[in-house]
Nucleic acid binder design. Sequence first.
DNA 1: TTGCAATACTAACAAATGTTAGTTAGTTCA
DNA 2: TGAACTAACTAACATTTGTTAGTATTGCAA
Lengths: 201, 201
Amino acid sequence: MLVSSKISVQKSTRKAQIFNASLELMRRMGYLSTSMRDIASAVKMEAASLYNHISGKEVILSETCFLMAEQLLKGLAEVNDIYFNPIEKLSLAVKNHVKVLTENTHAGWVFVHEWRNLSEENRIRFVALRDEYEKGFTTILKQGEDEGVFQDVNNKFAVLTILASLNWVVEWYKPQGDMTPEQIAEKLTEFILSGLKKENN
Amino acid sequence: MLVSSKISVQKSTRKAQIFNASLELMRRMGYLSTSMRDIASAVKMEAASLYNHISGKEVILSETCFLMAEQLLKGLAEVNDIYFNPIEKLSLAVKNHVKVLTENTHAGWVFVHEWRNLSEENRIRFVALRDEYEKGFTTILKQGEDEGVFQDVNNKFAVLTILASLNWVVEWYKPQGDMTPEQIAEKLTEFILSGLKKENN
DNA sequence: TTGCAATACTAACAAATGTTAGTTAGTTCA
DNA sequence: TGAACTAACTAACATTTGTTAGTATTGCAA
């Protein structure tokens, strides 16, 4: 296992209940449209009582975003440290990405969609992490190019396109669906590497 | 030209000014965080005066979303009607998609990101159009498979992944950037068809 | 010039929001 | 027992929000 999950393995503390309920609500209605009163009523308390457990609405968003970012970065770092073959690296990076996003589907969705609503300070920190993550992918592509395994593409363009397809997983992945995260990762890797044309192997 | 633009070729009526200012603000701050007072001050009037020109905040969002959807669908329909070769079809569908999204960058962004904030009634209508659009792409892929040009992939999966990469264009496209919409479309088509591996043609 | 339609304004509303203050009940533990 | 802590409550706050009502001004058509 590349990365350990903190969000999905929560003790059932009141704080954890609040987080879980919040993330579910935010996935359904969006961060801004989810009020503290909505959250409170989901965990059967008054809005004011939430402040005995969390310091404000934004920490739900920020803790989620930064935890996910941390997991993604950690996984990518491990991949970039350990394995040599660029194809293998890319494949493992994709697997890690899908794994992290699907481990807690609500958190994954909120992470992908709602980071824009972070306070300015947090947003700046977050974007820095995102840039770092993108750089990790760029490194893999560059290595692939240098070794003559990958086409000579516009790296920035390619990385963004790849990450776009990876992130879209949060849109339609269902734990009870007909594809496991591993299968999804495999299909995505295949798509990224070989595209649609049949002549390709 | 496959599709004519309505949003980008606006007469400078007061309503058009309001729409333009709104879309720019909404791209920067999001739909929900953009208040009528923000919009009003951007066009130098009072919030209440906006109602002489538009019936409410949501019409800005809904008109934008449905206009974009209409343009996308129209372009796709033309492609599916006229051309025969699936590869050519896909390539033209991609080109149309990128074209529509980049013609008015703010509208494109709002369309991709904010449709979730439509009223329930509009959201249902919108999702129906989106499903129809996805079906158009599925048809192309299926044809490619039947003719032995495309790999035998999970079509639903492939279409969603493809559209994800196409939509991500709104994230980073800049009219003054170093790639034209046509070049972007070309690169995307290449990526979708052939992937990253070098052995592919 | 008169009159009307278009467009702007001021004022205000009712609702919703995140959060704070102050209080109370229950539990833990010395 | 009693002190300290935890976690719930009620009440209220200051803002912000989209929108409406009513009124003034403007500019064009008759």
